[in-house]
Structure formats: C-alpha cells, structure tokens
C-alpha cells in the first residue's frame, strides 16, 4: 500500500507548524490590506493624486502576486526576513482589491448623507468617521471576508521566497522520506479544513449584513 498512515501521523506536527506560518502570514497581511485599502479608497476621491494612486493599484492588481513577491524579495536587503517581505507584499497586493470593495461601499452611501454632513459643517474626519464609513463598511463586510479566504489560499506562493509555510514544509518533509503523495494530499485536506468553515462563516455574515 502506498499510503503510510504512521508516517502521516508523525509529520503532522511539522505540517501544523507550517499551517501556523500560513495563518500568521494571512492574518497580518489581511490587516495591511484592510488598512491600506481603506486609505487608497479614500485617497481616490482626491482629484489628481487619486487618479495616480488608482493607476498604480490597477498595475498591482493586474500583475501576478508571485512575480511581485520574487521581485521585492530580490530588491530588499537580506536583513529583512522573507516572512516580512511576504506579509507586506501580500498585504499591498490585496489592498488593491479591498480598495475596490471599499470604493463600492463608499459610492453606495447616499449623496444626501454627504450633503447633510456639509450642512452641519462637520470637519472632514467627522464626515468620514461618523457618517460615511460606518454606513459604507457595514455593507461590504462579506465582500471583505471573501478576500481573507482568497488571501489564505495565496499564501503558498510564499514558498517561492523561501518562507517555510504549509506547502514548503510538506515539500521538505515529503522529499526527505520520499512520501510525496501523503505530504501534498494532507496539505490539500488542511486547506479544506480551514477554508470550508471560513466560507460557511462568510455566508452567515452575508445573511446578517445586507450584501451590496
């Protein structure tokens, strides 16, 4: 029989260690994507600068994440760890997506709301913070959640820049013992184990907050 259960069981701690790195990179990268994406979406309303930012984001969005990762990793000095590069590039890449999501949310806020804020002569930070964003973000929560799952599934790309995440770990332990079928199959299952429940949670969120 080509499937070795005992071996699978023995390497499980290593694989879970890899999964931990994957989850860590996903969460930290997502944090960057959430904050930066919002910043970009707000900047886009500024006349000239907004167009410029949009063009840059469009370029980031239509070119492969893998190439961006390898590119940036080759540029930064070797004192920066691969994981840091991975998290930042992942976050910036996905901020190009979250910015579009935020934008659709912001555009969905009724014009009267802006006018009311103006009529009350609210300062800019109150207009955004107390009027526009609370309404805009609420509607896009499910869409933002989808990008968390998408990001999780893009983290294996980090193996290209020597981060030992789940897939790279499987590659390592699988090659050591020449048990490649087990290693990669388990990785597939671990991915499903995380992404199917998350998809379920997103669907719950969708029902709770009105979708855009």
């Amino acid at each position: 029989m080509f499937w070795d259960f005992q071996w699978t069981w023995e390497v499980m701690p290593d694989l879970l260690q890899g999964l931990k790195v994957t989850v860590q990179a996903t969460l930290l990268g997502y944090l960057i994507a959430l904050v930066l994406g919002l910043g970009v979406a707000m900047l886009r309303r500024v006349p000239v600068l907004g167009t410029l930012v949009h063009a840059v984001m469009e370029f980031i969005r239509t070119t492969p994440l893998l190439v961006q990762l390898v590119f940036v990793f080759a540029l930064v000095p070797s004192t920066v760890t691969a994981l840091t590069v991975g998290i930042v590039v992942l976050g910036v890449h996905y901020s190009a997506y979250t910015a579009e999501v935020y934008r659709s949310g912001i555009e969905g806020v009724a014009k009267g709301q802006w006018e009311a804020a103006r009529a009350l002569s609210l300062p800019a930070y109150r207009t955004w913070g107390a009027v526009v964003l609370p309404q805009a973000i609420r509607k896009v929560i499910p869409a933002l959640g989808n990008y968390l799952i998408a990001m999780f599934k893009d983290t294996p790309l980090l193996l290209a820049i020597t981060v030992t995440e789940l897939l790279a770990m499987a590659q390592r332990v699988g090659n050591d013992e020449f048990r490649i079928v087990e290693a990669y199959t388990v990785v597939g299952f671990l991915f499903l184990l995380v992404s199917i429940p998350s998809a379920f949670i997103i669907r719950r969120l969708e029902r709770r907050y009105a979708a855009v």
Partner: peptide, 20 residues
C-alpha cells in the same frame, strides 16, 4: 477546488500524481 490553492493542486498533479 475553490478551497484548495491552485498552487497546491498543481504541486499535487506534478509531483504526487506520478507516484500515486
């Protein structure tokens, strides 16, 4: 197939499938 990363599917097909 939505739940597994494309890269994982590809590695599986390129490396695990020939052995299995």
């Amino acid at each position: 197939f939505r739940g597994i990363a494309a890269l994982v599917i590809m590695f599986w097909m390129a490396y695990a499938l020939p052995i299995a």
